[in-house]
Design a protein around this nucleic acid. Structure first.
Length: 113
DNA sequence: TTGCTGACGGAGG
DNA sequence: ACCTCCGCCAGCA
């Protein structure tokens, strides 16, 4: 990503998140690594929590490394996150993405620099 | 200021 | 494959 604008680590996270193609997902750790803060995956999650004010951020496309929808309770409705993913062709069952390998999108690889 | 928490992830048992 | 522990660092009481 470009540099850290206005010192906001969150905005960079949101920018990367917006670049996730429809029907694909990525992980908190992948984004953190892409931003040069490998190991700070938790901060990415925190950034997602703050993304509620930016409606353009498809936070539902960000899941953990196992493909588990750990952040689903942060969406108003209990299965809105799952519904949105399924609507994009992603198979979700028991809060877990079944075809994870097929829909996984890594910014470090796909986005390059 | 200190301590606890958390939408995570990797290492070790 | 499953469970636990530890590092990460921005908010908040």
């Amino acid at each position: 990503m470009s540099k850290y604008k206005d010192g906001s680590f969150f905005e960079d996270v949101w920018e990367v998140t917006k670049l996730i193609p429809k029907g694909r997902v990525t992980s908190y750790g992948a984004i953190a690594e892409y931003l040069g803060s490998k190991g700070s995956a938790r901060m990415v999650g925190w950034a997602m929590n703050a993304s509620h004010k930016s409606d353009d951020v498809p936070a539902h496309r960000v899941v953990n490394r196992k493909g588990l929808l750990t952040g689903k309770h942060h969406f108003g409705e209990f299965n809105e996150m799952q519904s949105r993913l399924e609507d994009e062709g992603i198979i979700v069952k028991e809060n877990q993405i079944q075809n994870m390998k097929e829909v996984y999108w890594d910014p470090n690889i796909e986005l390059e620099l």
